[in-house]
Design a protein around this nucleic acid. Structure first.
Lengths: 292, 292
DNA sequence: TGACATTATAAAATATTTTTATAGTAGCTG
DNA sequence: CAGCTACTATAAAAATATTTTATAATGTCA
């Protein structure tokens, strides 16, 4: 069976229009008709109902079922392509969210260079959702991801290598600056400067606000720790961050004393189906040795 | 890309011999040669090394990686075939291990008949390992499985619907027959009649013997509860079973008082990719209503 | 009714896959 | 070392499969 037919079929389900699918793939319209017929013959079941009365195309249960598998098959193929390309170019495509890259990558870079691995590493920056997607379709071989729960995804192996608590950072002249430790509930009336919502930090932060029953005043959001730190230094607000961050001069770090203290968990993640090359195993070993 | 090529490739990895693979598929030998070449061109990488000096065929890393995906793709296709066939025939292929079938199926059969579902259910008997495999490649749409931990498999959804504790069963004239409750550690010197090793029961049993640091005397194993019960009635030994079993007249049931008491968990399991038909949803609903 | 949008069909053209026939390479054996 | 065996590669031809072109069919809608 030709996988092209599955691609046609999937797109037909998207577009629900034979002619448009033909255009989409740059082929003639009968090509799509015959491809769908081939599939229907192969699986011995009607896949779509061409209801020209209501000008609609509906997918039969068989069709929906096949679509599931088609998606999976096409993704698998795509993954294979990416993955093998990385292999051939002797490259490790490593996904890194900016915060993790800033803190962890410099730590291992010297070692990587020494073991002549650095030149084979191609870093790909991105948010955690993006990176997870890129991992699944093979664009990356591995990724470092942050989370507040141990990662557990179908088709991905997550290998935890570090944990960091979150802290409260306040400006040097802030009323709380003398405190060493603090309960989260004491921050009820503070102004916050936080990361953008897509960051893992917010999941942890939201968990604490929910637990302590208050709606925080978030006066500003950024995706740059330096920016956040500068605003904290100027008493624009306080922030909630881990210590894997460059601390500014005019900022004070407070420990949280709450019973539930979310942690920032960093894991190295790769596909369950991915066979680690010697270089990749070396990279894993270095990370475990230096970062754990 | 033609999936046939992937099948040829997978078999080549198995057999490591082009000509034999050709025989296997009933095609000529150059067919395999060209198929592999096609794949190598498509993925831009050598997949196998034809080492005629050492009379060997080795798989390159790219080849191994592709083999992973090929396996997955071919299984997915196979699943689609089975699954759609069941759909077309309007049949629910339901996997049932014998013990579960005996206890649970009669309970729902009347309801199934009333809702005209019974005629659409095709039961497939088998051990839990077998059933899991059959589920994954689409031979069955659903299965009831027993386990002592909540089931958690990649690609399968497990929907727990019942739990039963395990009990100790002893003959009516056995010294322990007067006891209502007992600690497992008290059974250190008893003779046991148990299920064959493949049964879930043994995982629970082994856990308890390990926890209590003794090697049990297993005098006989069977895969038939009635047989086990009869032997218990005759004081050949005692047994460790749930209460989802036909109790014999001359057998007494004792509760276990241990802190850790494994439970027999029954779940209905189906593929994550499986789209439930109305009939299948109906079946699920009946099971939850009657069995939960 | 006629223009339009859509899918189906048949025949021809192309592309792909397989076969047949044969060559090449190396091991093994007498 | 010649000749046989086992294995894979290659080229040309044959067989299949897919796509295109051209056109039909069906129903909408103004």
């Amino acid at each position: 069976m030709n996988t092209k037919d599955l691609a046609y079929f999937k797109e037909l389900i998207n577009q629900k229009n034979f002619s448009k699918v033909a255009d989409f793939f740059g082929v003639s319209q009968p090509t799509i008709t015959t491809a769908i017929k081939r599939l229907e013959a192969e699986f011995g079941s009607q896949l779509v109902i061409r209801d020209r009365v209501h000008h609609e195309l509906t997918i039969t249960p068989s069709g929906q079922q096949l679509a599931e598998h088609a998606t999976s098959i096409l993704r698998e193929l795509d993954t294979a392509h990416h993955e093998i390309q990385n292999l051939v170019q002797n490259q490790i495509a490593l996904g890194l969210p900016p915060i993790i890259e800033n803190y962890y990558f410099p730590k291992i870079a010297a070692q990587l260079k020494q073991q002549r691995l650095l030149r084979h590493i191609l870093t790909v920056e991105g948010g955690s959702v993006e990176l997870r997607k890129g991992l699944l379709d093979g664009q990356m071989d591995m990724a470092l991801l942050g989370s507040i729960e141990p990662l557990s995804y179908q088709n991905l192996i997550a290998d935890e290598f570090d944990r960091h608590p979150f802290y409260i950072y306040v400006g040097k002249t802030h009323p709380l600056a003398d405190r060493k430790r603090i309960f989260f509930s004491e921050l009820r009336h503070e102004d916050f400067v936080l990361f953008e919502n897509s960051f893992v930090h917010n999941q942890a932060f939201n968990r604490l606000t929910r637990r302590n029953h208050f709606r925080p005043d978030v006066v500003f959001r950024s995706n740059d720790t330096h920016m956040i730190m500068k605003l904290v230094a100027q008493n624009v607000g306080i922030t909630y961050l881990t210590d894997i961050v460059d601390q500014q001069a005019d900022v004070v770090r407070l420990e949280l004393m709450d019973e539930e203290r979310p942690e920032f968990i960093t894991s190295i993640v790769y596909r369950t189906t991915h066979i680690l090359t010697p270089a990749q195993q070396q990279l894993l070993a270095i990370m475990h040795r230096i970062l754990a």
